[in-house]
Each structure stands twice: as structure tokens, then as C-alpha cells.
């Protein structure tokens, strides 16, 4: 069970959180301008690194805030992003 550092509530057990996948994939400003391939890319394609991953989490059972952290997918080391 990981312990994740909520920026507002401090460290809490992983089960209090929801995982939001890769960070930094913004909702396109004008989805209508994207062709099918580019839109599918936004919808479905994400990095799957073996190593450091920058990802979104939400403290669902606590303050309900979304935040970004860096997690090593092999060792589960965690860093808050600079």
C-alpha cells in the first residue's frame, strides 16, 4: 500500500486516492479542429514508462483536490514535481 503525499492533507494511504493517469495531457482547446487520428491520440494514447512517471492523483476521500506527482513505476519512489 503506497502512501501518497497529498499537498493539503499530508501523507495518506493510497486507497484514499484516485488515479488520474499521465499528467499534462490537456483537453484540446478546439476539439473540432482535430482530425480523427489526433483526437484518438488525445483520448486513448498515454505514455507507459518503466521508470519515472508524472501523473495526476485526486485525494478522493479527503480534500478532493487534484494534484500532480512523480512516481517511479518500478520502485514506487515518489517526488512532488518541482
Amino acid at each position: 500500500m503506497m502512501s501518497l503525499p497529498c499537498p493539503h492533507c499530508g501523507p495518506r494511504d493510497e486507497t484514499e486516492f484516485g488515479y488520474g493517469g499521465q499528467a499534462g495531457v490537456a483537453y484540446p482547446a478546439r476539439p473540432g479542429d482535430l482530425d480523427d487520428r489526433a483526437w484518438a491520440e488525445y483520448l486513448f494514447v498515454r505514455d507507459n514508462p518503466r521508470g519515472w512517471s508524472t501523473e495526476r492523483w485526486v485525494h478522493r476521500a479527503g480534500c478532493r483536490q487534484w494534484f500532480v506527482l512523480r512516481r517511479h513505476t518500478v520502485t514506487h519512489e515518489i517526488e512532488s514535481p518541482a
Partner: peptide
């Protein structure tokens, strides 16, 4: 509720 908050907060 999760989804509404996610759109509002992150996008």
C-alpha cells in the same frame, strides 16, 4: 461528482 470536480478543477 468525481467527474464534475475533475473537469472543473483540472481543465
Amino acid at each position: 461528482l468525481d467527474s464534475l470536480e475533475e473537469w472543473a478543477m483540472t481543465e
